[in-house]
Computed example of a mutant assay.
Amino acid sequence: MTDLDQRITSALRERAESNVDTDRLTAGAVTRGRSRVRRRRAVAGTALGVAALLGVGVATGPIGLPFPGQPATSTASAGGAVAPPPADGVPGAAARPDQIGADPAVLHFGVAPDGPRYLSWAVQDGVERVRVGVGGDRTVTVEIAGSAGRLLATSVDGLPMATSVDGLPMVVAAPERPGAFAGAVTHETVSGKSIWLRHWQPAPGVYARASVTAENHQDLLDVAPALRLDRAYRCAAPVQLTALPEGARVVGCEVTLANFPATFSASLVLARGQADRMRVELGYDNDSAGTRAKGNRTIGDRPAYLSPQGDQLELLGLPKAHLVASFGGSYRGFTEADATKVLGGARVAEDLTRPETW
């Protein structure tokens, strides 16, 4: 373990063991007016008290709070912003924490309509994640999982992975440490950048982590009330896969919309067994003159192009878009024939810039 890793681990352990007055925090969550007063006082005094307060009571409620700087009448779709559509009939994370990350097509949490703008959403390896814009170029990443270990084994944007005693990758103290998810806000400087982290449990059985690169941790506190754990959403993407190789299944979904509608991307990850992986990505660029004109393969009656390395296959003919299956490098175990089958059955939205058709 490096000196940096040791500092991260020791800092988190030290703050995670701080005492938290849970009775006071619960009372504050029940009485909304009092909780607001306490939050204001706590922000001026101690970050840990505020973080714990925000972690109790608002994340599971049915009403989202307006995001600072936004009018209460704003919506998630205003100004070209896009939000994942509701997954009707599917319970949220608060009701079924055991389902978090179980279905790559479903997010069991999200952001309230009056909350910050979605930049991306994803489900991968048992962890669900959203990235939201909070002003300027600052981005808050919020992740949830149904177990502490699952979340702690997932890398944090901008932070190196530490190694626990048992050799597993970790980014905080081992999950069995008391208070590891008590709401502590921690800080580290990496390559001159100030990174803030918060670990907490917004509902029983739900483990959450938020991170931001900024001058202070205020963004973490502002985003927390906008989180919704009482409903589920679809990991909607502009491409669907209808033909999979034998034994394969979709295990990951990610949509990135930071510059929508000018540019955006969506990717689906396939798995077979323990090691076989393939990634299918659709990338859109409104300023693109077009895709590659000439192919060296054919998929059905459409041209395709196999990379010189033989590890990427692109389906041609999509205006301003690229649809590529990657099965080499870190993605392995699948073949060109597998990629041909997947791309041959891919369904791409007729109008990529209309998310309601995804």
Rank of each mutant, 00 (worst) to 15 (best):
L268V: 09
G283P: 11
T291I: 10
A266I: 01
T298D: 06
P303Y: 02
Q274L: 12
V251W: 01
P308I: 01
V269L: 13
A271N: 14
S267F: 11
A266G: 04
Q274E: 14
A304F: 06
F260T: 02
R302N: 06
G295V: 01
P308N: 09
F264V: 07
S307H: 03
N296G: 09
A289T: 07
K294T: 10
E281S: 12
V280I: 09
R292H: 08
S288N: 11
N296E: 05
A304P: 12
G295K: 02
S265H: 12
R292G: 07
A289F: 00
R292Y: 08
S307T: 10
P303I: 00
T298F: 01
E254I: 01
V280M: 02
D276C: 08
N259S: 11
N286L: 07
P261S: 06
G283A: 14
A289W: 02
S265Y: 12
P261C: 04
I299E: 03
E281P: 02
V255I: 07
R279S: 14
T291S: 15
D285I: 06
P261M: 02
D276E: 15
R297W: 03
F264Y: 13
V255E: 08
T291N: 12
D276V: 04
Q274W: 10
C253I: 04
R297I: 00
D276Y: 08
L306N: 04
D301T: 12
L282Y: 05
